[in-house]
Each structure stands twice: as structure tokens, then as C-alpha cells.
Write a protein that binds this DNA or RNA. Structure first.
Length: 932
DNA sequence: GCGGATCAC
DNA sequence: TATGGTGATCCGC
């Protein structure tokens, strides 16, 4: 591989065959690349690629020059610091989870082959002459792969059969597969129609005591299924019947390990005839899952088993197709595995990053580890932290899904279009499509972005942010049209020669701007109380789609809470490893989909509500005013299984703000919390606290919000007053403040902004004093700080799509980064953290390291081990005090009880790390107290 | 907030 | 003949 990236050859390395895919080993790259290049040479596409390659090469040149200026002393210093961080990360390594990455083999192609056996022995691909979505293994042997235009594939393989895509079919199959995934991890995280991450830890804990009957599964041919819960019932029904029938497993002859009934690993027991008994270990459980998938769909899947998502992902590719691979949960195994692993195999490191690293002599993860000092001086903090995680074989150990979507778009490629009228007409069509999608999800956004690609393949985007959120065709078009006209005018006499146009809308408004879609606090609690699915929170808007943009008045006489924080403040991490590292501890609670913290929080509230409702059924005011239908949004519906269909464009979430805020509407307050007290007569001058349900005598929302903060922090039940220092400086209400829906800024100074921004998420959930402290002030957020709303339960990142990804270090040459000295100093004392000690918000133990990556990692562990078990049944959770997490100790003691992760769906990327939350170390506000 | 780049699927 | 669509993050401005 290096050869290609190293390039130097005369052709564009970026256009060379990307054989970083299963089934493409040992190909005649030279011949293939020659065909690819010759098929493209002279085209506008090629010219543009050449231009982009040149830009990358220039970046590399700059980097090379920069590298030459680094002194030995700087390197030494960096080395010392990196070492320290590495040690800390290494010590906090969490090997307690068993993460599985499942990936269907050549999915679309396999489905087509299944439904049309004639294709079975032929090289085929799914897509069109213009672009292929995927190819079967026969075709891969010719160098035909996804993302390659069909006409070039045909040159590589003249007999290639190209079948058009049929997403409805793939989606249907995907749903079947997901049902099986759910049996092993109800909170599995789908990454696309054919891929998902699952946490098998809990399943295995139970499985260990399962009788054989529960681990017995029938072969397809058998009609008597044993323990296959209702699954068999639908043994591959569908119309596909005809062709299918015995296409069985071996879709690919080159299958390394056609498993179905393989025996090898010790534990398996082959039961006679029609069924097979699977063992209790992970490998057996995973093999069983793949077996069930195959029995049910006639399609094969490959899987990777490892202590974290990053490794699991790589593993699933190891024995593909139809195989699985496991990296044992011990440091040695992980490090050995990493050693020779090409960096390009790691999710997040793409073509460009690979090339840049290669120019530094880094092609494997081992190299990455050896060059960390250098990398810390040449790449952005985000980038090198990611590299460091990779070099240590670290990754996310729990699945969280992304937060709600942040943008929605539609774009179309067409044959050259130069007529203005046509362009405007197309623009409108795009806006119509987009508006329709927005309506489906009940969203409204303020930023409209027009994307244009000319016939030379040059892409440009133009955006404008409106004062108010919009969603209708006319509104969107009004903005898009202006952007387009401006571009048209800019090229003046000439005409825009377009080949693609797209319209995107982002900066979704939170409940604020939205109308009353806010969901009531009760609604939130109800959802939350139901467990994992509660994520759905405020789906307020869902049906709102039909409401007019601006608002509908809240039900009279009721409090309308904007939204509860869906996410709790947590530290965010690197893009690719969300939450884990993070140079900054961002708090953006809102973005996070649904953290454990949140869940716990929701649980607590739900208990209160429950008791309340029991004692007071008649009080309509409480429920009527608060309750909200919210759950109807199909998308937010808690379904654990959610389609990811990126290809189609519909994703689900949607919500917006994260925090509920009380609006100036007064209503009859519910009674005091838990109190059996009698009743609180509706007093126009009071507001009822959603936490303690006590009445707060004020109509000032700031005061009220402050009270809520205190309640959340466990400090008070009465009207507050001022203890809260929250307002350190900022003026806005801190507690249930509304986080602005705006997208956060990604500017360079995020740290600063957040810190000083009163409205930021941090302050929003400021119930924790600790957060406020210097220690946790966040330093940046990698991502979106903005408020997101919450929707149906999710959590963070990762991703998915929302996932956070790694980004290539593009800016090695940037000014400040270029100064090694400044970099190093940053390492020691990240902005915002200088001189302060980071205190774990979960265990409250001060941490030695000032490095947020290390710190976040520690918090993750705490959350996994402590918070989680707090959510467990009362008995076990017993008070559990927060014992310090393992932080610096090895991961000994793992908890067995893994509370439900409550996320209902997830989609985030895998890399994301744990959710951390911030919270206060304030004396009294321990998490225990908070939740109890 | 904008615009260009990267990445993933 | 012919090189996609959607969503997200990063980073310098």
C-alpha cells in the first residue's frame, strides 16, 4: 500500500485503486491502476483530481518544511509530555466491554445475488454506469469496487453485470437483520443498512447461565425451530423465494471461513441434524448471531470482536467475508494487533490523512506510537490526540448514538446546465424536496446553503443565515435563489455551467423558535421512565410539522417547558473519538443524545412523577398541561431499531433544543414533590418546579430557573436564592436555561467562547458546581455545542451518521500550530485549565492529569462503572458511593451490572467515547445524591 | 457564521 | 456518454 500513497509515480495516487477493502488483496494493482487512469485521463474529473492532489502535496511540503524546523529540544519536551499522557491513557484502559462490529458481506450485491441466482457465479455490481454502490467478490478480483464508475468497472471486467439499486429491498432485509441484532443488544448502534456495533457484554453475562435450549438454533431447512423466538416463523419469506432457495451460505467461494456449521473453536457443540447448539463464550454468541442472520436472510455477515469499537471495526474486516475475528480483552493482544495495522484501516483515517502520515514515514499504528512527539508538534490537538488513541488501541467502549441531526440537504447531479431559467427551476425543485423532508421531521432551520459544482468539478458553497427559522419551499427558495443569483451575477457575462446543485438547511432552531412543540416535562419523564426508549424526549415537534412556523400558543393555563436537557453535560471528545478525548471538556449537554447521566436524571424525575401521579390523579392540571403527545413522531419513536438509510436520506431524529425552559405561562402548579401534601392551589404568582414540584413564588424565570438548578443539584427544595454561584458572571439563568439553538462556533477560540458564554450548555446544566469550576470548564467542543434537542433518546456521537470523525490534519502549517513551543505548552496546560485541577464529576476524585484526553477517559470509566450501576435496580445500586473509578488503576473490577443503556437508538459512530458528564464536585452534590 | 476539505457509508 | 448523495466535523477566516 505504501507504494501507492508514496506515489511518486506519475499518476495521481488519489485516483489509484483503493484496495483497502476485503476481497481485494493480491490484485494486479499495476494493471488495474493503469486502466483506471487511462479511462479518466483528459477528463474534467481527472483534471480536478489532479488539482486536488496538488493541493495535498503542497500541504505535505509545508509540513515537511515545518518538520525541519523542529528542534531536538522541542521534540524532547514533547516526548516527555506525550509519554505522560500515554501512560495515563494506557492505565485507564477499559477492557471490560465486549464490543462487536457486524458487517454484512457485500450487502447490496449479496441481496441481488440471493434474489437472482444467475448472478451468483458472475462478477456483478450494484449501481449504474456512472457509479457503483458495491460489487460482489467475483468482481472485486478484477478491481471493481464501490465508488467506482460503472463504465470504468466495465473496462476492468467486461463481463461485469451491473444491477440497479433497490433500496427498498435492502431496507427490508436490513430490518430483519436488526431484529436479530436487538436480541443481543437492544441498544445496538446501526451505522448503515448493513453495519452495526453491538455491546455483547450484557448478553454474555446472561448467556452464561442459559440452558442449551436457548442456545440452540435450527438450520434453515428445518422447520422446527427451537429456541428461536418467533424468528423462524418468517423464514425468508418474500417473493424472493423462487430464486433463492438454496443459495445458502456460500455466496462466495473465496470465503475464508464459511462458517455455518463450523466446529473449530472448542465450545461448539454440533447437535444432530437440523439444529446447532452454540456455546456461551463471545465467539460462540457472535457465531450464533451470524448463523441466525444467515438462516433468516440467506446472507452472510462478518464480525469483529474487541474491547472497543475502533478495534472491533478493524476486526470485522479481518476474516471477511463470512468470518469473524476477535482481539482478546487484554492489553497485550490489543497492542500486538495494532502493531502492524496500517493506519488506513482505522476508521477516520482516509486517503489524505494516510498520505500525510506516510510522508512522515508513518504507515502503521506502531509508527504512530513511535512518532507521537513529532505528531503532537505537527498536527492539531484534535488530530494528534486521535492518533494517540489509535496507537494505543483505544476506542469507544460504549455505544451512544448521535444526537439529533444538524442539517438536512438534497443535491442532484445532472448533465451540464447553463441556462439560468433551468437553474432557478431546479433550485426550486430542490427546495421543494428539502421542504418536504423538513416537514416530515418537523424541523425548521435558519441557515440555507447552496452547493454548486461546475462542469470542471469545482465545488463551492454559499450560505446565508436568516433571522428566523424557516421550513417551507418558498422560504427556503427565497434564500437559495438569492444565493444562486449572486453566483450567476458573479460570473457575469459568462454562464454558470453546472453539473450539480444542492440545497442544505442547518442551524435548526430549538424549541424556542419552534413553536409549541415543546414537550412537556411530564412527557419527557414518561418517556424517560420507560427505559431506553425514553430518549425520545421532546419530540415535540413531530407532528408539528403541520403547524405554522411560528407558533402556536401553548395550552392555556399550562407551563410550557421548552425542553429538558436531553443530554447532560458531558465532556466531549475528539471528533473521531467523541467524548473520549477531548481536548476540551465541553459541556454541551445538549448535543449529546442521551447520556447515562441523563438517563439517571430522567429516572429520578420519573420516580417523582410517578409518586406524584399516584397521589394525585385528579389533578388534571398537572398532566393535561404538561403531557405531550410527543411520541408520535415516528422518527423519534423509541424504536431501538432505526434505519440509517443514509442513502435515502431520511434520518430520524430531530429535535432541537435541549433544555426545557419555562415560559411565562402560569398554571396550576402540581403539588410538591413527593409530598403528600395537599394541594397547591393554582397561584398566579407561583411556578411549580419540575424537579421538586414545589411552588416557587416568583414569576421571574431567572429566579425560577435558578431554583431548578438547585433542585437538580440536590441542594435545595425551596426557593433558592442565591447560593448559586452559577451566575458567575454570566447573566443568564443558568439552570434550565435555554441553550441557544445556534450552532456553536467552531472558531478557533471556542474555549474562550464557551467559558464566557453564559448560555452555553455548561451553564445550562450547571447544577453541578464542579462543572463550573476551573476544572471542568470546557475547553472546546469539538463539535457542536449548540443545543440540540433531543429527540428520541440518544446520546452522543458518534456518530452517525452522526458520528464524529477524524479529521485529517490539515493544518499543520498553520501559524500557531506551527510553533512547536506553543504547542507544547498547550499540552501542559490547555487553555482554560491552567493551574486548575480536574476533578472527576463522577467519582469526585481530583485527577492528576491536566490533559483532557486523559481526563475524559477517566470519566468514561467512571460512568461505565459507577453511574451505570446506579441505574441498576435499587438493590444493587445501593448507595454506592462513588468509588473512584478505576482511573489509574487497572481496569480491575468491572461491574457486572450494566444498567441499561438506555438509548434507544443510536446511530452514532463508533468511535465515540463515553459520555462524560460533568458535574459537580461540589461538596454536596455527588452524583449519588443527585440521583437518589 | 462561512467556505473548503476530509471522511464514512 | 459517463465519476453519487447525505451528514458531520475541523479549521482558518
Amino acid at each position: 500500500m505504501e507504494s501507492t500513497s508514496a506515489d511518486g509515480g506519475g499518476f495521481l495516487s488519489r485516483m489509484a485503486l483503493n484496495d483497502n477493502k476485503a476481497g481485494m488483496e493480491g490484485l494486479d494493482r499495476e494493471r488495474i491502476n493503469k486502466i483506471i487512469i487511462e479511462s479518466s485521463k483528459g477528463s474534467r474529473f481527472y483534471e480536478n483530481e489532479a488539482k486536488k492532489e496538488l493541493q495535498v502535496n503542497q500541504r505535505i511540503e509545508k509540513m515537511t518544511l515545518q518538520r525541519a524546523q523542529i528542534t531536538e529540544q522541542q521534540l524532547q519536551k514533547a516526548h516527555t509530555q506525550v509519554e505522560k499522557m500515554v501512560n495515563e491513557l494506557d492505565m485507564s484502559r477499559d477492557l471490560s466491554r465486549l464490543i462487536v462490529h457486524v458487517d454484512m458481506d457485500a450487502f447490496y450485491a449479496a441481496v441481488e445475488m440471493r434474489d437472482c441466482p444467475e448472478l451468483k457465479d458472475k462478477p456483478m455490481a450494484v449501481g449504474s454506469m456512472s457509479m457503483l454502490s458495491t460489487s460482489n467478490y467475483h468482481a472485486r478480483k478484477f478491481g471493481v469496487r464501490a465508488a467506482m464508475p460503472g463504465f470504468i468497472a466495465k473496462k476492468l471486467c467486461p463481463n461485469l453485470v451491473i444491477v440497479p439499486c433497490n433500496f427498498d429491498k435492502y431496507r427490508a432485509v436490513s430490518n430483519e437483520i436488526r431484529k436479530i441484532f436487538a436480541a443481543y443488544d437492544p441498544n445496538f448502534m446501526p451505522m448503515s443498512l448493513d453495519e452495526a456495533y453491538l455491546d455483547f457484554t450484557d448478553h454474555l453475562e446472561q448467556r452464561i447461565s442459559w440452558p442449551e435450549s436457548l442456545r440452540t438454533h435450527c438450520l434453515h431447512t428445518d422447520i422446527t425451530e427451537t429456541a428461536c423466538e418467533g424468528e423462524l416463523q418468517s423464514k425468508v419469506p418474500q417473493e424472493s423465494e423462487p430464486c433463492v432457495e438454496n443459495l445458502s451460505p456460500l455466496l462466495f467461494e473465496d470465503s475464508p471461513s464459511s462458517t455455518p456449521s463450523l466446529p473449530p473453536s472448542g465450545e461448539k457443540v454440533e447437535s444432530g441434524g437440523g439444529s446447532e447448539v452454540f456455546g456461551t463464550c463471545v465467539e460462540e454468541a457472535v457465531r450464533e448471531m451470524r448463523f441466525r442472520i444467515e438462516q433468516k436472510t440467506t446472507l452472510t455477515a462478518s464480525a469483529g470482536i474487541a474491547p472497543n469499537t475502533m478495534i472491533a471495526k478493524v476486526c470485522s474486516d479481518k476474516n471477511k467475508p463470512n468470518g469473524q475475528y476477535r482481539v482478546p480483552s487484554n492489553r497485550g493482544a490489543v497492542m500486538d494487533f495494532i502493531q502492524t495495522l496500517p493506519v488506513r484501516k482505522v476508521s477516520g483515517i482516509g486517503k489524505v490523512s494516510e498520505k500525510m502520515l506516510s510522508s512522515l514515514g508513518i504507515t502503521t499504528c506502531a509508527h504512530l506510537g513511535q512518532q507521537m512527539a513529532l505528531l503532537s508538534l505537527m498536527f492539531s490537538e484534535t488530530a494528534w490526540h486521535h492518533f494517540m488513541m489509535i496507537s494505543l488501541g483505544l476506542g469507544s467502549t460504549h455505544m451512544e448514538r448521535d444526537g439529533e441531526r444538524k442539517s438536512m440537504s438534497t443535491e442532484r447531479t445532472f448533465r451540464e446546465m447553463s441556462v439560468v431559467e433551468e437553474q432557478l427551476s431546479l433550485c426550486r425543485e430542490l427546495c421543494e424536496d428539502l421542504a418536504a423532508d423538513m416537514k416530515k421531521e418537523g424541523l425548521r432551520g435558519k441557515t440555507i446553503t447552496l452547493k454548486l459544482k461546475n462542469v470542471k468539478f469545482e465545488v463551492k458553497s454559499r450560505a446565508c443565515t436568516l433571522p428566523c427559522a424557516v421550513a417551507t419551499t418558498d422560504e427556503i427558495f427565497a434564500a437559495a435563489k438569492d444565493l444562486l443569483k449572486t453566483e450567476i451575477e458573479n460570473v457575469s457575462p459568462q454562464r454558470l455551467q453546472l453539473r450539480l446543485m444542492g440545497v442544505r438547511i442547518s442551524t435548526f432552531v430549538s424549541a424556542d423558535d419552534k413553536k409549541p412543540q415543546q414537550k412537556s416535562i411530564v412527557g419527557f419523564l414518561q418517556q424517560g421512565s420507560s427505559g431506553p426508549s425514553h430518549g425520545i424526549v421532546p419530540n415535540s415537534v413531530k407532528e408539528t410539522a403541520s403547524h405554522p412556523p411560528m407558533e402556536r400558543p401553548p395550552p392555556a393555563g399550562s407551563h410550557v417547558l421548552e425542553q429538558l436537557p436531553q443530554k447532560v453535560p458531558k465532556l466531549q471528545g475528539l471528533p473521531w473519538a467523541a467524548g473520549q478525548t477531548g481536548a476540551q471538556v465541553s459541556v454541551a449537554g445538549e448535543n449529546q443524545p442521551q447520556s447515562f447521566f441523563q438517563k439517571a436524571y430522567a429516572k429520578k424525575l420519573s420516580l417523582q412523577v410517578k409518586s406524584l401521579s399516584e397521589t394525585d390523579k385528579g389533578r388534571g392540571s398537572v398532566c393535561s398541561g404538561f403531557t405531550q403527545p410527543g411520541t408520535d413522531n415516528p422518527k423519534s419513536r423509541g424504536a431501538a431499531i432505526e434505519m440509517h438509510e443514509s442513502a435515502q436520506g431520511l434520518l430520524g431524529p430531530s429535535g432541537n433544543s435541549s433544555i426545557t425552559r419555562v415560559e411565562p405561562v402560569r398554571v396550576a402548579p402540581p403539588e410538591a414533590s413527593g409530598s403528600t401534601s395537599g394541594a397547591a392551589a393554582p397561584d398566579p404568582e407561583t411556578l411549580t418546579c419540575p424537579v421538586c414540584f414545589g411552588e416557587v413564588r416568583t414569576t421571574d424565570l431567572h429566579v425560577f430557573n435558578r431554583h431548578i438548578d438547585l433542585c437538580l443539584s440536590g441542594v435545595a427544595t425551596e426557593t433558592p436564592t442565591d447560593t448559586d454561584s452559577e451566575s458567575d458572571g454570566d447573566g443568564g439563568p443558568k439552570g434550565f436555561t435555554v441553550i441557544d439553538e445556534g450552532v456553536p462556533e467552531k472558531g478557533a477560540d471556542r474555549e474562550r467562547q464557551k467559558r464566557s458564554n453564559p448560555e452555553d450548555a455548561l451553564s445550562a446544566f450547571k447544577t453541578c458546581d464542579a462543572l463550573r469550576g476551573p476544572s471542568v470548564t470546557r475547553a472546546e467542543d469539538t463539535g457542536d455545542p449548540g443545543a440540540k434537542e433531543r429527540r428520541s433518546g440518544d446520546e452522543p456521537l458518534l456518530d452517525h451518521h452522526g458520528s464524529r470523525r477524524v479529521h485529517s490534519p490539515q493544518r499543520a502549517s498553520s501559524s500557531h500550530r506551527g510553533d512547536p513551543a506553543s504547542q507544547s505548552s498547550r499540552l501542559e496546560a490547555p487553555p482554560g485549565h491552567e493551574g486548575s485541577t480536574l476533578i472527576c464529576p463522577v467519582c469526585q476524585v481530583p485527577q492528576n492529569s491536566h490533559d483532557l484526553t486523559v481526563f475524559n477517559h477517566h470519566v468514561d470509566l467512571c460512568l461505565n462503572q459507577e453511574v451505570l450501576h446506579m441505574l441498576a435496580p435499587p438493590s444493587s445500586s445501593s448507595s454506592s458511593a462513588l468509588r473512584p473509578p478505576v482511573t489509574a488503576k487497572r481496569g480491575q473490577e468491572l461491574h457486572t451490572a450494566r444498567p441499561n443503556k438506555g438509548k434507544s437508538k443510536r446511530r452514532g459512530p463508533p468511535a465515540s467515547p463515553p459520555a462524560k458528564k460533568a458535574k459537580g464536585r461540589g461538596s454536596q452534590n455527588t452524583i449519588d445524591k443527585f440521583f437518589m
